[in-house]
Structure formats: structure tokens, C-alpha cells
Computed example of a mutant assay.
Amino acid sequence: MKGMHSILAAFALLAFACSLASAFDTSPLHDFCVAINNTEDGVFVNGNFCKDPRLTVADDFFYSGLNKPGNTSNLVGSNVTAVNVDQIPGLNTLDISMVRIDYAPYGGLNPPHTHPRGTEILVVVEGTLYVGFVTSNPENRLFTKVLYPGDVFVFPIGLIHFQFNIGETKSVAFAGLSSQNAGAITIADSVFGSNPTINPNVLTKAFQLDKTAVTYLQSRFGSG
């Protein structure tokens, strides 16, 4: 009898867990949920308030401008033009967005970074890119590829990745991301340019660098 009670208890716990799981639906329950800033009449869903569907218009799903090259005259020689929920309110709850990335001739770099909330699929439309990503600890395996126009490469969610223009002309790529706002954490900016700055002793030990090198990097990446 004791064994039967244990089995019944296990089934009861399983049923309770299943009921909790079925109570959460990750898929949209409406055709769309256009993001708005007006909190008076909106309904808060996944980081944004939603417009009354009856007031939705075509422009809520529209963006113009990805045909325009980005300015690559900066220290890394690249420019990312994002099209996420901030540019297209209709992307809210649809788990998708995209970017255009422009790279200066030889040396244009989209520095090592991660997207904490999205996988990225990138297609090259102009130029030649050396791209790669690194797997998580402890393997830290590096996967790299040289891409030409028409080539596609995938960067799994959360993993550090980069793109580097190895051609003599400018490069252009477009990427889709599996999030309405995938986020971006540029490694060097976050580590050496945090506000306030991370204690140099922490970075000296973490990166096995001389403290002078750490403070120099913090001066290069810091806002101050």
C-alpha cells in the first residue's frame, strides 16, 4: 500500500507540473501586438505596451532605409543598422528582427560580441568576410569560415562571435535574429568600458595582464 501511495503521489506531482507547463503559452495569442509608448490604454506584453488592434496601420509593420550604407569611419570600421521592435513596433511578440552591417575596406570589424536573446543568421551580399564564433566553456572551440556574396553563416544564441572584412573593398551583410530585440554585448566595451569601471585588480588577474595595460584599456574604452 505504501508503494501505491508513492506512485499516486508521483503521478499527482507530474500532473501538477504539466498543468503549470500548459498554463504558459509562448506563442502569440493574437495576430499581432503592436508596441506603443502610451501606457494609458495599452496592455503590457513582453517589455512593451500593445496598441488596440483596431488602431493598427500598415506603417506599424514598415521600415525604410536598409538600402543606405552605414558610416564606417570609426575605430572598428563597421556600422550596424538595427531593425528591431524599436524601429518596427509590429515586431513586438513576433521573436524576429534584422540588421544591416557595413564594413570598411580591409580591416572593417564587427568586434567580438554576443546576443543574449537571439540566434543570428547572416548572409553576405557584398565583399569577403572572415567570421567565427566560440563555444562555451570548457571547450572554447572556435568555428570560422570565409564568406563570399551569397554565403550564409549561423551564430548560435549567446555565443561570442565576430565578422572581419578581409577584402580590399567594402563589405555588406544582412542578418536575421530570433528575437524582437536580441540585445548586443560587445566584449571589450563591456569589460573595459563599464560604468563605473571594474576594479583593475579584477581584470589584471582575469586576463593575466599587467595593471598598466588594464588601466590603458579602460582609458580607451571608458566614457571618461
Rank of each mutant, 00 (worst) to 15 (best):
residue 5 H to D: 14
residue 7 I to E: 15
residue 8 L to A: 14
residue 14 L to Q: 10
residue 14 L to I: 12
residue 17 A to M: 10
residue 19 S to A: 08
residue 19 S to N: 04
residue 22 S to A: 15
residue 23 A to G: 09
residue 23 A to K: 12
residue 24 F to S: 11
residue 25 D to C: 11
residue 27 S to L: 13
residue 28 P to L: 06
residue 30 H to L: 12
residue 31 D to T: 10
residue 33 C to G: 02
residue 34 V to Y: 02
residue 39 T to W: 11
residue 41 D to L: 11
residue 45 V to M: 06
residue 46 N to V: 05
residue 59 D to F: 11
residue 61 F to P: 00
residue 64 S to Q: 14
residue 66 L to Q: 04
residue 66 L to K: 06
residue 66 L to S: 03
residue 69 P to H: 07
residue 75 L to C: 11
residue 77 G to K: 07
residue 78 S to P: 05
residue 80 V to M: 09
residue 82 A to K: 15
residue 86 D to F: 12
residue 86 D to H: 12
residue 88 I to V: 03
residue 88 I to W: 04
residue 89 P to C: 09
residue 90 G to F: 04
residue 92 N to F: 05
residue 93 T to Y: 03
residue 94 L to S: 05
residue 94 L to K: 06
residue 94 L to W: 01
residue 95 D to G: 09
residue 96 I to N: 09
residue 96 I to Y: 11
residue 100 R to H: 04
residue 100 R to M: 00
residue 102 D to W: 09
residue 103 Y to S: 06
residue 105 P to Q: 01
residue 106 Y to D: 12
residue 107 G to Y: 00
residue 114 T to D: 03
residue 117 R to S: 05
residue 119 T to H: 10
residue 119 T to K: 09
residue 119 T to M: 03
residue 124 V to Y: 02
residue 126 E to C: 07
residue 128 T to F: 07
residue 132 G to P: 03
residue 135 T to W: 10
residue 135 T to C: 03
residue 137 N to M: 10
residue 139 E to G: 15
residue 140 N to R: 13
residue 141 R to Q: 12
residue 142 L to P: 08
residue 142 L to T: 13
residue 145 K to W: 08
residue 147 L to K: 03
residue 152 V to T: 13
residue 155 F to P: 02
residue 159 L to Q: 05
residue 159 L to V: 07
residue 160 I to F: 06
residue 162 F to D: 01
residue 166 I to Y: 02
residue 168 E to V: 13
residue 173 A to P: 04
residue 175 A to Q: 00
residue 177 L to I: 04
residue 177 L to D: 04
residue 177 L to C: 07
residue 179 S to D: 08
residue 181 N to E: 09
residue 182 A to D: 05
residue 183 G to V: 07
residue 185 I to H: 14
residue 186 T to G: 03
residue 186 T to H: 00
residue 187 I to P: 08
residue 189 D to T: 12
residue 189 D to M: 03
residue 191 V to S: 08
residue 194 S to V: 05
residue 194 S to I: 01
residue 197 T to C: 15
residue 197 T to H: 15
residue 198 I to W: 04
residue 200 P to G: 01
residue 201 N to Q: 14
residue 201 N to P: 07
residue 202 V to Q: 10
residue 202 V to P: 04
residue 205 K to Y: 12
residue 205 K to W: 08
residue 208 Q to P: 07
residue 213 A to W: 14
residue 216 Y to A: 15
residue 216 Y to I: 14
residue 216 Y to K: 14
residue 217 L to G: 01
residue 219 S to W: 08
residue 220 R to G: 09
residue 222 G to A: 07
residue 223 S to T: 09
